[in-house]
Design a protein around this nucleic acid. Structure first.
Lengths: 109, 109
DNA sequence: CTCATTAATCGTAAAATTGCAATAATACTA
DNA sequence: TAGTATTATTGCAATTTTACGATTAATGAG
């Protein structure tokens, strides 16, 4: 019926899926790359650099923030975003565990 | 208007996003974990183990396959799925590069 | 206080996703 | 060939996602 049946999966699976979903969009990847690049945080610069409307960027930022991947603080008239190290590391660890659990050793199909 | 504007992003960003999107669902994570666990491939076992209908599982498998993450070969009456090592490694590399590009060094916000 | 700048929110439209029942296709078995 | 088991496909409904214009805060400048 169009909604994910989270209740039948483990906490682990749901957490990883929700973090990945937040990253799984080219615009949000671009935003994250941009934030990482200039580790002095930016904000509305994104609107000029990506080719998306201000409302759209703001929405993507909101999604990244609600996933916990970034955090924003008000900096005078503009807002300063940066990576949330804790959640970033969490994603790195969980994902590394998951991806690393496959050892391409035994051929199968 | 409801569709991602892929043309304004780099090939890199679009590729990573599409691979991540394929993984970013608890059911598909569960399926991948199950395939990895029993490196002898399974197929309809999934329907019994996850609590989802056969049609739904088949659709998730199709998505994973079209993303290139798994491959399936016909094994008698059933179908044998397993990880596609090349694409798996590709995801591991690109993602490692991306996630690793953030060094949590300089405090910001 | 008024104005300009910046960001968030609201409302809307188009499209994609999720899930399932029903049906079709495929291949083995007797 | 008829029957059975397994998987894929189709069609549908509910929900979510993506994107944007318009509007609404919020803050600093004059």
């Amino acid at each position: 019926m169009g909604l994910t049946r989270s209740e039948i999966f483990t906490e682990e699976q749901n957490l990883l899926a929700s973090l990945l979903k937040a990253v799984a969009h080219p615009a949000r990847i671009a935003i994250l790359q941009r934030i990482i690049l200039s580790n002095t945080c930016i904000c509305g610069d994104l609107v000029g650099e990506l080719g998306l409307a201000q409302a759209t960027i703001s929405q993507h930022l909101k999604e990244l923030k609600s996933a916990g991947l970034i955090q924003g603080t008000i900096e005078g008239v503009s807002v300063c975003y940066c990576i949330n190290p804790k959640v970033w590391k969490l994603l790195e660890n969980r994902l590394g565990e998951f991806l690393g659990s496959y050892k391409g050793a035994t051929e199968c199909c």
